[in-house]
Design a protein around this nucleic acid. Structure first.
Lengths: 212, 212
DNA sequence: CTGTAATATTTTGTATGCAGAATTCATAGT
DNA sequence: ACTATGAATTCTGCATACAAAATATTACAG
């Protein structure tokens, strides 16, 4: 039996992010610490620690005397986050080892193609897309950068369930992933970065209409 | 009388960052929660909340059962943070209103020139440099981005007192700031961004030798 | 004298308690 | 009926208490 030996605040944070993905929390709703703690079977102390972490990542907001609430969503903020992630992933790609990139390019291409074949659940699509990007930038040796990307993307997860279920043209996304992989295969790092930026801009536009 | 009506955790965080700037904490030293809380005149609860925030910003590390400690410094990590901030400030400049940039360009130029004139304390130099960059990117409407820049720069503050006191060629920094301001005055946003990136690369190199 | 096991002490991680701020609800006055 | 006022309640923010893990100390065998 593998007993969990990590701070409760981390486990709580993970669980809350999972519930956020499932769409359990509407944007803007306040959190009742006592009831949520009871529901999770923990005390308020580690819960609050998790909430403070999430507030630092922009998932939650806190107001003096008024506790925490899920940060409201807006097209403006979504645009902002996308621009940031695009720049950060571009940086990750710029500073990655070209040899490594060429090595993983075939895998990236295959994943992108598999992706376009299977019509999957929205939840799976999101996860698949995330994993693809993780693999893409995973060769970057800048650890702080990879951590930062993860952290900023956490703030973006508030939007993922909003755009779910619709007729998201994921073929387009897969197509764009193929383009990136092709550039990498060709050893064209510059082109891959441009294609990646393009992927983020388009992805943003695709989602945008579904946000209030 | 203006009574402080903001969470203790924020005030504590601020105080700790101030002490960090003063060089009170050596990199790698563990924090004793009880004694630090007593010293600050608060309980462990809001102190821990501040520590968790700082850990999220990369200023501290936490290990299960072992508490918090100031994250060790390294040239590698310093390079990493500089690359990130350079990319983020470049993004901020890219997405700023050109009209606004031209409007503040004269002020930026004047500040940079004043800077090179006065031989100030190292502490002042740091502060001045920060304020200059804040003004530069302050016109960016991407609020998330500005917050993120502040947050990432917090992690960089662990290094500022390390490089202090030496014969830092700040004339060079002031010169580079002038270049950036001149590009903005000329309405050459692209050139300003390049000059800004150059400023970060050089600034990094200047500091690098003084880090273990 | 050195290495190790047992014990004592310190310190963290989590739970609980408490005061005050914010909100809700009820009541009175217009 | 509607608003204003005040009491009652809820909830947060901070302090304290407790249990378990980690560290330091001691005792002892080799």
């Amino acid at each position: 039996m593998a007993i969990e030996r990590r701070p409760l605040r981390e486990q709580i944070r993970e669980e809350l992010m999972l519930r956020l993905d499932r769409g359990d929390f509407a944007a803007g709703t306040d959190i009742n610490e006592a009831s949520l703690a009871a529901e999770l079977g923990v005390s308020r102390t580690p819960l609050r620690e998790a909430l403070i972490t999430l507030a630092g990542e922009g998932v939650l907001e806190s107001n003096q005397g008024r506790g925490f609430r899920f940060a409201p969503v807006s097209r403006k903020e979504f645009r902002e986050i996308c621009a940031i992630v695009a720049a950060l992933e571009a940086l990750a790609l710029e500073t990655s080892d070209p040899v490594y990139l060429e090595k993983i390019a075939p895998r990236l291409l295959r994943l992108a193609q598999d992706f376009s074949d299977n019509i999957a659940e929205q939840q799976d699509i999101e996860r698949h897309d995330d994993e693809w990007h993780d693999l893409l930038v995973g060769g970057c040796l800048n650890e702080r950068l990879l951590d930062l990307i993860t952290s900023v993307k956490a703030g973006m997860r508030r939007y993922s369930h909003l755009v779910a279920g619709g007729s998201t043209p994921m073929e387009r996304a897969a197509e764009e992933h193929c383009r990136i992989a092709e550039r990498l295969l060709a050893g064209d790092q510059k082109g891959a970065i441009a294609a990646l930026r393009n992927n983020w801009v388009n992805g943003m536009e695709r989602m945008m209409s579904r946000i209030p």
